Computed example of a mutant assay.
Amino acid sequence: MSLEALTLGAFFIATMSFTPGPANLSLLSIGASVGLSRALPYLVGVWTGGLAVVAAGALGLGALFVALPTLFFTLKFVGFAYICWLAWKLVRAGFGGSVLDIAPSFWAGVALHPVNPKAYVQVVMVFSVFVAPDSPYAPQAIILAALCIATMMMATSLWGLGGDAIRLFVRDPRVMRFVAVAASLFMVASVGAALVL
């Protein structure tokens, strides 16, 4: 893998990881509602689910989706339905609302990435576009997977800390409600955009 391909891959991974998506926006919401420290099991679950999706991408998930496009189509729409449900819960709860007095579990975090179409679009692109066909695959896949996982961990942590900042500094319920609705709309829009890819 050339330095240019690695740089472009890292930029793509960072762009996909740090932009609003279900994991980031759910951590923003949970951080604002209960604080990131209370949501650590959920955060570790999000990382675990993300690791599973990255590993599947490195092991050839993209080839499976090419061979079975109906499977990918079905997964995208089931995932979109789940994300819409999650966004609806966020809107109903609002930030700091009583619905999120208890932090979601580790397993709720694990379930998030495997139903997130944006995550699959990312890993399929990473392990197909940024791998040099004239070099051994395994070392490239390991480097790209490590970049994906490290970047995801940084991004989700920072979004959760952003939620903590909202919880500490914003007291107006109307502002909290506005942010909750905006986060939910961004969540649905980001996954909806992945549906057309």
Results as ranks from 00 to 15, higher is better:
residue 95 F to N: 02
residue 93 A to K: 00
residue 73 F to D: 11
residue 83 I to M: 15
residue 86 L to C: 07
residue 92 R to G: 07
residue 94 G to Q: 05
residue 92 R to S: 14
residue 92 R to A: 13
residue 74 T to K: 11
residue 95 F to W: 08
residue 68 L to K: 09
residue 76 K to M: 12
residue 95 F to L: 03
residue 67 A to S: 07
residue 71 L to I: 10
residue 95 F to T: 02
residue 81 A to D: 13
residue 89 K to S: 12
residue 68 L to F: 14
residue 66 V to H: 09
residue 92 R to V: 05
residue 79 G to Q: 13
residue 90 L to P: 00
residue 94 G to R: 02
residue 76 K to I: 06
residue 74 T to L: 15
residue 70 T to P: 09
residue 91 V to I: 08
residue 69 P to L: 05
residue 76 K to C: 15
residue 74 T to F: 12
residue 95 F to Y: 07
residue 83 I to H: 14
residue 82 Y to F: 11
residue 80 F to N: 08
residue 64 L to P: 13
residue 90 L to S: 00
residue 81 A to Y: 14
residue 81 A to Q: 07
residue 87 A to G: 03
residue 88 W to V: 01
residue 88 W to F: 08
residue 68 L to R: 03
residue 66 V to P: 03
residue 94 G to N: 08
residue 92 R to I: 04
residue 65 F to Q: 05
residue 85 W to C: 01
residue 70 T to F: 15
residue 93 A to M: 07
residue 68 L to A: 11
residue 85 W to A: 05
residue 93 A to T: 02
residue 82 Y to A: 09
residue 94 G to M: 07
residue 88 W to Q: 01
residue 79 G to L: 10
residue 68 L to N: 08
residue 87 A to W: 10
residue 85 W to N: 03
residue 74 T to E: 09
residue 89 K to L: 14
residue 65 F to N: 01
residue 77 F to H: 14
residue 74 T to I: 15
residue 83 I to R: 11
residue 85 W to G: 04
residue 81 A to E: 05
residue 71 L to H: 08
residue 91 V to K: 00
residue 82 Y to H: 08
residue 78 V to A: 13
residue 73 F to W: 13
residue 67 A to P: 06
residue 79 G to W: 03
residue 82 Y to M: 12
residue 70 T to M: 14
residue 82 Y to K: 07
residue 90 L to C: 00
residue 91 V to Q: 02
residue 92 R to K: 12
residue 66 V to G: 10
residue 73 F to E: 06
residue 64 L to A: 15
residue 64 L to E: 15
residue 74 T to W: 11
residue 68 L to M: 12
residue 91 V to N: 00
residue 86 L to G: 01
residue 87 A to N: 09
residue 89 K to A: 03
residue 88 W to R: 02
residue 84 C to M: 12
residue 69 P to N: 02
residue 89 K to D: 07
residue 68 L to I: 06
residue 86 L to S: 06
residue 75 L to V: 06
residue 70 T to L: 15
residue 94 G to P: 04
residue 82 Y to G: 12
residue 79 G to S: 11
residue 80 F to M: 15
residue 71 L to F: 07
residue 80 F to K: 03
residue 74 T to Y: 13
residue 86 L to T: 02
residue 92 R to Y: 09
residue 79 G to H: 10
residue 91 V to H: 01
residue 94 G to S: 12
residue 65 F to S: 05
residue 67 A to R: 14
residue 87 A to K: 00
residue 70 T to N: 09
residue 93 A to F: 01
residue 84 C to S: 10
residue 80 F to D: 06
residue 89 K to N: 15
residue 69 P to F: 00
residue 86 L to E: 03
residue 66 V to W: 08
residue 81 A to G: 14
residue 79 G to A: 10
residue 66 V to Y: 11
residue 70 T to R: 13
